[in-house]
Design a protein around this nucleic acid. Sequence first.
DNA 1: CAGTGAGCGAGCTTCCGCTTGACTT
Length: 815
Amino acid sequence: MGKKSSVLEGNLVIVESPAKAKTIENFLGTDYIVKSSYGHIRDLSKADFGVDINNKYKPDYIVSSDKKEVVKDLKNLVANVKTVWLASDEDREGEAIAWHLYDELGLTKENTKRIVFHEITKDAILNAIKTPRSIDINLVNAQQARRVLDRLVGFELSPLLWKKVKPSLSAGRVQSVAVRLLVDREREVHAFEPIASYRVTALFLVEDEKGKVTELKSELSKRFDTLEETKAFLENCIDAVFTVSKVEKKPLTKKPAAPFTTSTLQQEASRKLGFSVAQTMSVAQKLYESGKITYMRTDSVNLSELALNMAAKQITDNMGEQYVKIRKYKTASKGAQEAHEAIRPTYLDQQTIAGSSAEQRLYEMIWKRTIASQMSDAQLEKTIIHINAGNTGEHFNASGEIIKFDGFLKVYIESSDAENEHDEDNDSLIPPLNEGDELNMQIVEARQRWSQKPPRYTEASLVRKLEELGIGRPSTYAPTISTVQNRGYVIKEDRDGEERHYKSLIINEGKVVVSDKTEITGAERHKLFPTDIGIVVNDFLVKHFENILSFDFTAKVEKEFDEIATGHLEWTQSIDDFYKPFHQLVEDTLEHSEKSVGEREMGTDPASGKPIIVRIGRFGPLAQIGDSSDENDKPRFASLRKGQLLETITLEEVLDLFKLPRSLGEFEGKEVVIGIGRFGPYIRHNSKFVSLKKDVDDPYEIDLDTAIQRIITKREEDEKKLILSFDEEPDLQVLNGRWGPFIKFEKGNYKIPKDKVAETLTLEECRAIIKNDTSVNKGKVKATAKTATVKVAAKKKTTAKKPAAAKATKKSVKK
DNA sequence: CAGTGAGCGAGCTTCCGCTTGACTT
């Protein structure tokens, strides 16, 4: 101030994230104000693609409605400072954010500086301030090309689906490929034919000099194809002498995994903590906001010098110098832009933190992974023992690992995706043995095994696959996974396994005993399955837009974007080359393709001789007997059930669908009907529903007497729930629910005020409580309430105010 | 929560990437 009071002083630094702003403000002096843009401030308008197709694809940008306030505040600040430092991330999107800020805030070359840093440390920030540059317009153009391409693809393909498949569907460069991966995998799973073989194992007892006995587990080096061969081999084992023929020892080193990126964090949190990818991101966000970890949306495995020093000190202090090995990791993922550090604890001297249990567990995992990444290799020794099985010509292998030096294993063991249905424990300790030693055979047994089907994707493994293909970004992995589920293309669920019979053989009292056993196989937990609508949409898109649905489409356009970024290609030219033929293809498809409902002819109904088809109907996949051309003879319909697909359902299964609902007769003068609903098989009687007993009652077999029993049991249970009822008002009841007593009236539930005792309420008091209840949940059936609120919200607001509708959708989707 | 399955054809839906909040059971 003072001398040149007429000239503006002071600095405004704009970053993307408010948490980052707070940290940086502490690094810089008082003449720096640091504010956040909260990501992008502008986007394409929604009308007419937000792009002028006929005018060199000129984008029509508008300030997003939730950023109006942010932009206003920034404008006010800009007016009062001398220099504005645009400090958005150093990648394509970050450069575009800087450019949008420059444009929207009305900045000039004279008062604006563009700075970048890859880590939030004081040195990095001060260094950045010393070396400002100007906005890289080529990089901005690469982003514009990316944005416009995604808009054109999404807004051309989606409406095509509305016409050819079903309204409200969506397609896009990222989501459609994600769905394709799932559909392809599902088909592989269905086409898979397991191959059976016989695995032979043997258990020996080894006694050392001191008389201590250890078990030695081993497996035959080959598997047999047939029961006969296996049995013959086992018979030969009965009197065989087992000798150690070879003792192999080899050193083994294991290296720690790189520090976490968004994708690896999601995978590991899924495997070790059972988090969904969305859950991982929201917990990580909390940790980030409270300053406990660095930024959680990153594709970089890089750690700052500061972090490396902290890690070295931590490891030395707690475990000793021999455990330290500072490493620089290189990113493996395609198209990584590395604008941030890897995900790491802000302060590595804090091994644990305060917070919710989820926060603590995720933090601890991040801490361990970070520390382990800077630790020495583990040194192991692998021992393999070959054991001759008499004169059979075959040998058993026993293997084990001993840790010579634990290194990083002291802290962190990375998990793997392999779903070992049969755990092979080869980590057992191997007793000291020498060539020629004779072994004391305890057990030789064999069992039938099958080759494994390809694994279905989990949320996290799908993210990993997308990252591998360079599709999507750290900020979009979780939202993409949600989108494909919200559109009904994909469902995450558990599926029961199936019973499978297998042969088991064992040597018992000098004889080979063969027995039949059963196991449950193929059960799935939290896996992603494509739905019929997902499959139909996918097939439609793959058929007509193979190019966009191909797994390397993104990689190809990324190459173009790189050329734009280096100034070797005009972005509008690149878009034009893509759009012209693409648009033509959309037009052709619109005109020439049939409506796609996944229809499949199943054959004829043996009872009526009418044709049976399956297809997608208004309310989802259905089976239909007869066609609708005959007005007097309407077709019969039945919905497909959970787990059934149009593509794989059999005629027999379809016919089963029409066996329900079926009437069993009457009870107390009212019909007893068996059906299958959204929550499984049920009994309907007197307009009340009773669930069948899981795994006990078969809806096709259950008889009237059993059904009546279930009805009576349900009545008794309900009575226990009932606290009060009134003869004058049969619709009103005081019930004991999951969250304590409440009043049920017509279709609404009402909370009982704390000062009232449920058991002593009068009808008048109940009515008063209902009248005064202000909560939203009044007498609405949930399913209809959901869609209703969404629609009302969308209608009330003007088109400019979309977020209200978006929020409502988000909310209803959460449950 | 558990039946439905064609339609007057209004007006709506939709993309990907940056960011955080504000909602309830």
